[in-house]
Design a protein around this nucleic acid. Structure first.
Lengths: 141, 141
DNA sequence: CAAGTAACTTGCAATATGCAAGCGACAAAT
DNA sequence: ATTTGTCGCTTGCATATTGCAAGTTACTTG
């Protein structure tokens, strides 16, 4: 287990406040969703996602997610222009958070992607194990 | 089960996007935390919380949480000036989301309130059941 | 080596946030 | 019953963040 991030200028020491300060905006979790569930790895792919993030906001959020140790980046060996973004262990550990947020919205709002939701509902531990396994396969290669 | 909220002008139908559009800001979840975990019920109490929310932002967020059916309000019968805010079933259903966010931050950031965190870690279902029970007791009375 | 692509950066208008002060309804004290 | 205080906001204004369009730079492809 690597050392935890030092407490920055947080409004309080509450763990929920820490999460909210890191992830509480309209875009960060969607980027993480795209990486975790859709396998997106490049700037271009993130830009093409459904919610149409602006280029400057995307660049800013990728920076912040890196600064928080949630994602890392490296050059694509087969194309020097491309950067490959990937989730760190800290990033993949957000899977339960995303899952609960999806389940809550699916239960209380009018939303799409019911296939995914049913997978989560049917066997949550298995769903989470699947996410972690696919991540491990990608990152060890 | 009451009807789900109609799909507004969402950027996409993704359930995670719905959650992020409703809860993805720096304050909403902290207000819900104060109600769920600390038993806060009035404007004054929210204002006094650790993170020092501004009065106009608090009023705005309470409005939005009500519009989304996450909280309700009523007059305090014993003091006509006071409004009592409380969580709806949809609001209390956010307990697993808050819990996972707390656990994630506690595992990866330098945070306080380790007593609460250990309770969550030791027996999560029991912790959630406790939250729901205290809520049910308050709301049926 | 010209044209295209990936990942940004910049400029600027619109929107949201944060702070301080004020306001109206009600309550408590004199 | 009138002053003083409390509660839940609202308003004004400065600053910060967001969103859109148009560059820019490094690399790749034809």
């Amino acid at each position: 287990m690597p050392g935890k991030q030092p407490i920055q200028n947080r409004r309080s020491g509450c763990p929920l406040n820490a999460s909210v300060e890191i992830l509480g905006d309209r875009w960060s979790l969607l980027i993480i969703r795209d990486m975790m569930l859709r396998g997106f790895r490049t700037y271009k792919e993130f830009l093409g996602s459904y919610e149409r993030i602006a280029t400057n906001i995307l660049a800013d959020r990728l920076q912040k997610l890196m600064a928080h140790g949630i994602i890392t980046t490296g050059r694509d060996p087969s194309d020097g222009r491309k950067l490959i973004y990937s989730l760190t262990p800290k990033g993949i550990a957000l899977a339960p958070v995303l899952t609960e947020m999806v389940l809550w919205a699916a239960a209380h709002e009018d939303t799409a992607n019911q296939a995914l939701v049913r997978l989560m509902q049917k066997d949550k531990p298995r769903f989470l194990a699947g996410i972690r396994q696919r991540w491990a396969e990608k990152t060890t290669r």
